[in-house]
Design a protein around this nucleic acid. Structure first.
Lengths: 231, 231
DNA sequence: TTTGTTGTTATGTTCTACATAAGTATTAAA
DNA sequence: TTTAATACTTATGTAGAACATAACAACAAA
């Protein structure tokens, strides 16, 4: 019988900084702290938690990284509106993420793109459509690979921008390098995917005169070369 | 003319820990570090960067929080597969996020839900459909509000699970409390939204016998009470 | 070969000291 | 009295030393 049958769980050493970090987060939630609220001084926290100031500073440093805490000399520290994707951004390195996670993120971006339709149609303006047409226009002449990538980013980026949702916009921008990395890896293995039957120009026409339903179907076809490669 | 026209940017004090954190991340990327690779000792880093061991430890502590680094006494530290949404999770407190961000995340979850169709149809199994039917069945009798919430979570959670995408699954689980919070806030303002014409039972039938296109439209109608309240 | 001992080493934790910026109070000048 | 310059105070930022602790390594004992 192998060792794994004993369900041995590896002992991950929990440090004081881990505990203090957890305690601080709980403390903020329990007391309904809001951005702008002052939080106790380092020495007070150290005393209350019965750890050294150093440990407290390590925990605080973590929350500062997330933008959750801001500190000024003499004034002390205040809770602040965190950068919601700050931690996510730091971790998004294709080299350190598992292949499966990269694949998952690739799919996630496609899922987003498919789901954008209703927001886009709800919030599109004539100006938006005009700019999309301008973007498509510029790409008809160019053929260089580097330009094509830029064009892809400009077009799909504009689609996200049209949702009027800054958070979704930011999220997709973070996902973009992962998407490109996975596409490049796929191309190494299976060659360049066939060009889709539905291009950007078609999508723009649908946004201009069509319906969300048509857009969803068109986007599905547009992305199908990628979709079809999923396991 | 207001001050804002001068584009005054607030001076955020950059600390040594901020710089060292940045340097470490760059260092890992530049040298193509992979999970499992050993990284220099604290003292070596401190010496190389010409800062105190304390500062190095603050920066390392941040990366440890993200799961990017693991350390063991004597053995030293190794790079490791980070928890991709670890930082995100810590920051997801409705009380400290801006109202607009909460709204954005609410929309993001709906966008996800709309976009799931193709993945679900591509990967559904008979067992999945059976379980969905079981979930719907159980809800027909119950009426209590608390049960309804649980049922919502079970049903939509199962939909995400059917995508076979652990990352998307995790993401939606993190988004869930935000979604519920926003729904609760909306109900305080505008009362309980009208029940949609398309219920869970209808969605299951479509998954069983219908097409992705039908599912997308059905999901749109199912979510429309929420959608219609968006600005 | 296995088990026990001893030393070594890198991280974990604490303590002290001082630098620095930014309020606060005090004093001097108008 | 009001204003400006001054010194004082305080909380964070940084540095350095010291010791605790876990885990590896090497050797000795069974």
């Amino acid at each position: 019988m192998g060792l794994e049958s004993y369900q041995i769980e590896k002992v991950e050493s929990v440090t004081m900084a881990d505990i203090v970090e957890r305690r601080l987060l709980d403390y903020f939630k329990k007391n309904a702290f809001k951005p702008g609220d002052a939080i106790p001084k380092e020495l007070e926290l150290a005393e209350a938690l019965e750890v050294s100031r150093n440990v407290v500073r390590e925990a605080l440093s973590r929350l500062k990284m997330l933008g959750m805490i801001e500190s000024k000399k003499k004034r002390g520290m205040v809770l602040s509106e965190p950068d919601i994707f700050g931690g996510f951004e730091r971790v998004l390195d294709p080299l350190i993420l598992e292949q499966q996670t990269l694949q998952d993120l690739f799919e996630l971006r496609m899922v987003l793109e498919m789901g954008l339709a209703d927001l886009i149609f709800r919030r599109k303006t004539d100006g938006d459509v005009a700019e999309l047409e301008r973007i498509v226009q510029k790409s008809t002449n160019q053929n260089k690979a580097s330009f094509k990538v830029k064009h892809e980013i400009a077009f799909h980026g504009k689609l996200y921008a049209m949702t009027g949702n800054a958070t979704i916009m930011r999220f997709q921008n973070l996902l973009l390098p992962i998407f490109e990395y996975v596409v490049a890896e796929e191309e190494k293995l299976h060659g360049v995917p066939p060009i889709s039957h539905v291009g950007h120009a078609d999508l723009v026409q649908i946004i201009k005169n069509g319906t969300p339903q048509e857009f969803k179907e068109a986007m599905r076809i547009h992305l199908s070369p990628h979709f079809d490669r999923l396991s």
